[in-house]
Design a protein around this nucleic acid. Structure first.
Length: 259
DNA sequence: ATGCCGGCCCAAGGCCGA
């Protein structure tokens, strides 16, 4: 089961790139962030025509997540538990029915800038709720990937210029600590399990020639439960997509599970 | 660079992203 997480930065602006990518790269499951669309406006028919089931959790203008799957999806849930007043669309779950079922959890973790401030407080509170949800998921002892745009640079090796992120919400010690606590529940960073080296990024800013100068950061991740980590065949970043016409500022991050 | 680009709102300029 090939699963890709991809922050598309707007479904309306990215539909041609997305459909070309679905045709060319053919993920079994695509987990999308920043669809920036309400559910009713999501162009589901054009994606269904490519053989995908479409499940969205959107909101007007910002945020929004979705799961596209060529495998049947069961038990779809929307929204991260823990705060009934949180109206931001940043979490969706479904079980992809492959040879082995895999729980797919898609997330768009809050950016948190400027830090300190209320937006950073929201980020840390959201990460605490994520910690609680992942704790519960681990109790199921089932294969699962908790994947998406984490807006976290886990280590210095995950940034071309780590010093530039030390005081940023993506790289602050408290952010990294919260991410490490999450991993330490028993998750595996799939990409790092197969490639421990520096210089691998999943985001390059549109500005200041960041792509041309390879000034990237690795902030899109698959964190696998032990049962999913046991099925891990490969993990990679589809860097080439950043060089296409009208690209997202993120690229897809993949895992292949024996499922 | 406390926003250089790009997408969203929706028709202009502001908000947001990382």
């Amino acid at each position: 089961m090939k699963i890709a997480t991809f922050n598309i930065n707007g479904i309306k602006a990215r539909l041609p790139v997305l459909t070309d990518w679905l045709r060319d790269s053919a993920p079994d499951v695509a987990v999308l962030q920043e669809i920036k669309s309400v559910d009713q406006a999501f162009p589901r028919e054009q994606i269904e025509d490519l053989g995908y089931t479409v499940e969205t959790h959107g909101q007007k203008g910002f945020n929004g997540v979705a799961i596209l799957s060529r495998l049947p999806l069961e038990d779809v849930t929307r929204g991260l538990p823990g705060d009934p007043d949180d109206e931001q669309a940043r979490w969706i779950e479904a079980t992809a029915m492959g040879a082995r079922p895999v729980r797919i959890c898609g997330l768009y973790l809050p950016n948190g800038n400027p830090a300190p401030g209320p937006k950073y407080d929201y980020k840390l509170a959201w990460m605490a709720r994520l910690q609680a949800r992942v704790h519960d998921i681990l109790q199921t002892e089932e294969p699962a990937t908790i994947c998406g745009d984490y807006n976290v640079i886990p280590q210095d090796d995950d940034a071309a210029r780590p010093e530039a992120w030390r005081d940023d919400a993506l790289g602050l010690p408290a952010t990294r600590d919260a991410f490490r606590r999450l991993v330490n529940l028993g998750l595996t960073d799939a990409f790092r399990a197969v490639d421990p080296g520096a210089g691998h990024y999943s985001f390059w800013d549109y500005q200041a020639g960041a792509w041309d100068r390879n000034l990237g950061i690795r902030i899109d991740h698959h964190l696998l439960t032990p049962q999913a980590a046991d099925l891990l065949q490969a993990a990679w970043i589809e860097k080439d997509l950043r060089a296409r016409e009208k690209p997202s500022d993120h690229v897809p991050v993949w895992v292949d599970l024996d499922a």
